[in-house]
Design a protein around this nucleic acid. Sequence first.
DNA 1: CGCGTTTGACCTGCGC
DNA 2: GCGCAGGTCAAACGCG
Length: 319
Amino acid sequence: MSQETHNPRPNTYSLLHQDSDHHNLLSQQGFYSSFPTNLNHNHYPFIYDHHLQNPSDQFHTHHDLSFLPGSSEFITTPFNLSNDCSLSGVVSCSNNNNCNNSNEVAHVIRDAAENPPTPNSSGSFSSPEAGVDEESSSKGKKDLQLKVCEGGDGKSKKLKGKKTKEEKKVREARFAFMTKSEVDNLEDGYRWRKYGQKAVKNSPFPRSYYRCTGQKCNVKKRIERSHEDPSVVITTYEGQHNHHSPATIRGGAAAFLAPPLLSAPPAFPIFPAQDLFSPSTTTQHFHPNSNYYMQLPDHDHYSLLFPNMLSSFIHNPHP
DNA sequence: CGCGTTTGACCTGCGC
DNA sequence: GCGCAGGTCAAACGCG
């Protein structure tokens, strides 16, 4: 069992590796493996995927959810955020190049944990093994770059002129969580318009695609039910709303959904409204493939901590 | 009529 | 190049 931690001080994100002795999260079948069910309220296995910004808006990092069902892109790890807001410890790995199997991915992650790269002056990052380098990531490592101040307009590319390589690779921030719920589409305070539905490979449940109905708001979300546990709904938000929740008049939920400290509201609910108010939904934010657990002091601090990742990823060796 | 959903077609990236 | 899978478009449709 290996476990690496960095800077166990507040506001620092620790990259921790959970090896095969326990949950074998990077199993040979891909990234599907065991999954803790006896969570206590302070331990939330977590997936986080977003643009991280420092106070001077210098750094945006682009993460993805390669381990989400159906995703086929790349994997990024959690990172360290030092007290001076510099970033380090980000590593990515494409699954079609030097990460041909999960073991390699695991090694990349572990290597990154043991030898976290340091941010350079331009704000881009690289991993010795993944060889990720912004804008120089040719040779099929297209999805690996970590963008600095990327625009991310998220516009459609269909039926339009060819986009440049850079344009094509820019992707909006993403955040995903899993919720035990009988309802697929969790109420989150925003209005969504469904624009597609696709069958998911190896799953009897389709994936639905939604777009925010706000004007010029490019936020999207996808909803699918876990084929491993049909009671679990996987919701993935992408992008940032350019408006506040239309549900701000709905009392308590609004306080969660539209935190005033954010000029650009997150695409995702700070806490799923249905989790808070519906007896048919239980509050479990987790991912069966994730070895990263978000530790939260308590629920009341959740909404304050979350937008800026002011929590620690912790390793739960015996969930 | 406006808005949202459905659904088949189409586009794109990736692996072989 | 081909096939597959994910993602998106847009016309048709349903509903209030």
